[in-house]
């Protein structure tokens, strides 16, 4: 391996190359991806903010790089970006905590 890191910023530019080894599936994915982000019932701006939030919950550095830049290009403010990330974080922590009910159920079932 030439790179000493698992993640290399330069790899983001090579994303399209995944089609080289599986053209049909790669092409279908990128067509789908492009279509998803077009203006629809949601604006492209709203979609960019959703993508940014998910990029963080998925902890994908490539996606964070791409959608921070995309947000700036769309004139999205820092405050809007940070709020979107909090939405992701709230769901992420909520998802952890709501499993607490599972723990409680289990404990209640086992305990005398």
């Amino acid at each position: 391996m030439a790179s000493q890191n698992y993640y290399d910023p330069a790899d983001l530019k090579k994303f399209g190359k995944i089609s080289d080894w599986s053209k049909e599936l790669g092409d279908k994915f990128f067509d789908y991806y492009g279509k998803v982000f077009e203006e629809g019932a949601l604006t492209a701006r709203e979609k960019s903010l959703i993508a940014l939030a998910v990029a963080h919950t998925e902890m994908c550095p490539y996606c964070i790089d791409a959608y921070s830049q995309d947000g700036l290009q769309r004139g999205i403010t820092k405050e809007e970006m940070m709020e979107a990330i909090h939405v992701g974080a709230a769901i992420k922590s909520g998802a952890t905590l709501v499993h607490g009910v599972m723990m409680m159920n289990k404990v209640n079932k086992l305990e005398m």
């Binding site: 604006t43 492209a44 701006r45 830049q69 700036l72 290009q73 769309r74 004139g75």
Partner: peptide
């Protein structure tokens, strides 16, 4: 409108709307 940083401008029509 020109971007305040090292990024390209977004779609002109959407920016105009905003």
């Amino acid at each position: 409108y020109n971007p305040s940083g090292a990024f390209l401008p977004g779609d002109q029509a959407s920016m105009e709307k905003d």
